[in-house]
């Protein structure tokens, strides 16, 4: 009996350690917003794709990828294939070897090569591979204004200071739009008396997302017609579609609950 208890305690400790180690890994700033895409990769003999949101969000608006290119808002939801990329859709909309960014041609995704190694598959299909990335998070983050949690970057300040200038239009994919007329900010009362109300800024959200990223798929409701709960948000609904995944995490309460209590 005594030995059994020891084994159980040891087992519980190992499991607890594994949980903590996993949580710590996902809390690393460079890994925040990382998406592993593995719909078909392993069947094709390739490692799953490691997609780092920090790199792409520093260069492009959310809407460009999630509306104009058509990427789903859920990891793995797009079901990207090598064939679609080669046809110039999804990753291939930009990664086609021809489109240029900052004076450099963007490498082609899923291009044909004599050998897989030559084709450069591992630039994206890199999970558990020792791939040296062209863009170093630590170098990038050094130049950025800091904010606790998430990627550790104050993205809004970075844009305001002109340190990033996310592209919102790509030729042949996006359409010319008029500039957005943002709706007014509004306040959402907290469900508990001790928490400040949320001040929701349409302007801040619309500048990167446009309208159709959020409405009606994520927010199919009219203002004030529903009581949001943190349980639902924590489970990945409403604000939780982006916050806690790519946008700053939910534990940064005061960044949304910023209204006055009195």
């Amino acid at each position: 009996m005594h030995r059994l208890s020891k084994i159980l305690i040891l087992l519980a400790s190992v499991l607890a350690y594994a949980q903590v180690a996993h949580a710590r890994e996902s809390l690393l700033p460079e890994r925040y917003g990382r998406v592993i895409i593995s719909n078909y990769s392993e069947r094709a003999g390739l490692a799953p794709v490691v997609f780092d949101h920090w790199l792409h969000r520093s260069q492009f608006t959310c809407r460009l990828c999630h509306v104009d290119i058509g990427f789903a808002m859920m990891a793995g939801g797009t079901k990207i294939t090598a064939a679609t990329n080669k046809q110039g859709f999804y990753c291939g909309a930009c990664h086609n070897g021809k489109r240029r960014y900052n004076g450099r041609a963007i490498f082609a995704s899923c291009s044909e090569g004599a050998l897989l190694k030559d084709a450069g598959c591992e630039r994206c299909h890199s999970q558990n591979k020792n791939v040296i990335k062209n863009h170093d998070f630590n170098v990038f983050v050094n130049k950025m204004p800091k904010k606790a949690l998430g990627n550790g970057i104050d993205w809004e300040a970075a844009e305001n200071r002109g340190l990033i200038n996310p592209v919102d239009f790509i030729e042949g994919v996006s359409m010319q739009r008029t500039s957005i007329k943002a709706q007014k900010d509004f306040s959402i009362e907290a469900n508990v008396t001790w928490m400040s109300p949320v001040i929701f800024s349409h302007k801040k959200h619309a500048v990167w997302n446009g309208c159709e990223v959020c409405h009606p798929n994520i927010f199919p409701i009219k203002k004030g017609s529903i009581k949001y709960t943190m349980f639902e948000i924590d489970a990945g609904e409403y604000c939780g579609v982006c916050h806690d995944k790519v946008a700053f995490p939910l534990i940064a309460c005061e960044r949304c609950h910023s209204g006055s209590l009195y």
Binding site: G70, A83, T84, F89, Y90, H215, P216, N217
Partner: peptide, 21 residues
Amino acid sequence: ETQKKVYLKRLQMCRDLFAFV
């Protein structure tokens, strides 16, 4: 198939927004 998948989704997003507004 691919064009259909991409553009139907994009069209649906536009339609849903107009209907929502």
